[in-house]
Amino acid sequence: MAFWDYANPTRFLKLVQVVLPWLTGLCVLASAAGLYMSFFIAPEDYQQGQTVRIMYIHVPAAWLSMMCYSIMAVSSLGTLVWKHPLADVSAKAAAPIGAAFTFMALVTGSLWGKPMWGTYWVWDARLTSVLVLLIMYLGLMTLWRTMEDPIKAGKAAAVLTLVGALNLPVIKFSVDWWNTLHQPASVMRMDGPTIHPDILWPLLVMAVAFTLLFFVLHLMAMRNEIMRRRVRTLRLRAASAAHPRSAVATAQPAE
């Protein structure tokens, strides 16, 4: 299936119709399994007690917040370089979802931080760079909202998205580059994960569930965006449509 076959929005919508129910089903199954594993199978932490379970939401949400931005960056390349007609739809649809995951990561992080560090928030490199990511998501959403013409807005947002992608490596390596309160990476490492399989498995299942959730929401949002643009086109056409002029009742013939 070539990438270009789905450049046609109608064909894309058909694909979405077929794929979406399966994805949704998988997502529900994975979420159920992941939640069960993280609440009942995964062990308590000997220091943190039950609090450690926040991790099973926090870590996948944080991963997704970055993956979502990566997808937006690739989509932006699609808009600017390959001029793929669905690329800016994809980027626009991903932004609110990414913002939601980022927000979730920040909220769960600060709820976790309160018992661990004694404060909801510290200005360390990891936390600050994720906050900057959230601001960028919100800024991009505002840019799209402020511009009336979706094509122009898409191009402007694509430029901003690509420039903002510089933040991604900063977030990823912030825990290694700077001394921070936030613990260093323990799953995605060159020399293999450093955590126990009892914790790793629920975490990975939750990550799969979150990824599926992202794709379900992303496809739905893309479908909505395509529909929204069609409505816009139809309304534009409706405004310019020739209209049978009703006779002017009060008018008198002009000499």
Binding site: R245, T250, Q252
Partner: peptide
């Protein structure tokens, strides 16, 4: 023409 009609009215 419509405008003229309205103005005359």
């Amino acid at each position: 023409t419509q405008l003229l009609g309205l103005m005359n009215a």
